[in-house]
Design a binder for these strands. Structure first.
Lengths: 152, 152
DNA sequence: GAGTCTATCGCAACGCGTTGCAATAAGCCA
DNA sequence: TGGCTTATTGCAACGCGTTGCGATAGACTC
């Protein structure tokens, strides 16, 4: 296959505009990295993204990928947070801001959308005065079924 | 100074008992690592602990330190969580369970004790059914003063 | 007290992510 | 169109944390 750089055109073009508006350059590699991230359902670890980018363009290096991801993040098009094991997970801004709750018992992972998280963020603000960032809200605990098992 | 292995005697002896109760061995290195962690105000990154342990005993290796930390964690004497930059931070169970709130603006870090966190944990439970683990509660957001600056 | 079992240690290598630096090439201006 | 500026890239090395493996040494049994 020769090229498939049109389905994600909207995102890529917005991105391109944002990059160029800052006097920075839009390169094929950046396009590729954005495409790969978009094709990853908005969730991927740094290593996975590096691997996929290199599969599409073997000349790409990890440093380029990570620097581009940093750039996307700076521009507000992507965010990253540290998963349970410390690995980085990137996701696109297209995916609405959300947090994660990870079960220490069974490993289940639940996503927290803005509605669900709202009362949590409010509680954080009341307790600390901080406006917590939903995208960096990564909780660990025990899910209902694991709690039930533990309670027996 | 030659030795200072008595102030933390209580912790070390409890630890020793717990280790031996599991049929495992209590070694000088483990004693040393526990001492170093205890002397770190209960907060230190893995790398810091490795460095300090090696300062006291140059023959110690990173793998030993990390494995011992894992053991302490398994026994419930220590916990670790991933800080903002993905680095691991270890702390002793002696220090009461607490979370952290990190300001993305100025870098300030606030500790969340159980009282402060209680309403937050309650909100998490209402929203998700999960019993969140306070020790792994690591939030990011903006502190009141950074919010004030941003609002101007 | 001697022998056996096995937890622990040290070593070495790996994976992930980051950073500094020199070379390249893209974009801009005259 | 030609030259210049500078962002970007690739390379290489580093730091942190993890893991596998063989050697060691401690504890337990007889």
């Amino acid at each position: 296959m020769a090229s498939a750089s049109e389905p994600t055109g909207t995102l890529a073009s917005r991105l391109q505009a944002a990059v160029q508006a800052r006097g920075q350059r839009w390169t094929e590699q950046r396009q590729l990295i954005a495409d790969v991230l978009a094709a990853s359902d908005g969730h991927a670890t740094g290593a996975e993204l590096v691997e996929r980018v290199r599969a599409a363009d073997p000349s790409a290096t990890p440093s380029t990928v990570y620097r581009t991801l940093d750039l996307l993040e700076e521009l507000g098009f992507a965010t990253h947070h540290h998963g349970v094991d410390g690995r980085e997970t990137y996701h696109l801004e297209e995916v609405v801001a959300h947090g994660h709750v990870h079960c220490q018992g069974c490993g289940a992972e639940v996503e927290l959308n803005a509605d669900l998280a709202q009362p949590i963020l409010a509680a954080i603000e009341r307790a600390t005065g901080y406006a917590a960032d939903l995208d960096h809200l990564s909780l660990q605990g025990r899910c209902p079924s694991c709690r039930a098992v533990a309670a027996r």
